[in-house]
Amino acid sequence: MEIPYTIETREDTGVNNAKLGIWLFLASEVMLFGALFTTYILLRIGSADDWSQLNDILNVPLATLNTVVLISSSVTMVMSWASLMMKDFKKYKLYMGLTILCSFGFLIIKYFEYSAKFEHHLYPSTNTFLAIYFTMTALHGLHVIGGIIVNTYFWGPGSKMWNTQPERFTNRIEIAGLYWHFVDLVWIFLFPVLYLL
């Protein structure tokens, strides 16, 4: 039995099922990260410490680089989808490959950030600011890892679908792109809130 509305749009929603599904999922993710942002606000309001001093230990240049890396990966992700729309599978492979590389770059830079903290004996248990900092960036990092797994699957074994159902495969990449842009969006807010404010 075929899964319905993978390509055709439903009359009542106006979109295919996968697109509605992913947007609803992203809505739930907004609640998840939103809850942590609210936690940050409440903890900071109630804190006796000056958080604008506490976050001086964070590496702003490295995080700025990470922001550039992640935004670039968003561009390569949308370009990989555009390549499929232009029926250029080779370009798709190139751009998706670049997206995955950028994602690994993000994680590597994050690894350097974290290990520098640990070397200086700065752990989540050190103070409340670091607790929420590690929680939010680690949860975001887990989302990056999830995206890497999905994108790698679509770059490798999953790309076989291009030969049998190209439109459905293109839609899959669009959906994966929506998730990936959301991960980028979270970081766009996380970066100034944690590092700069």
């Binding site: 979109v15 509605l20 947007w23 609803l24 809505a27 968003s74 980028d184 766009i188 100034p192």
Partner: peptide
Amino acid sequence: IATVKGSLVASYFMHLISEKKMIYWAL
């Protein structure tokens, strides 16, 4: 600034600017 950046990502990378009503309502 973060909201402007986020809106650019949402509108153009996520194609929200040309999306259907259903998605707008969900959001």
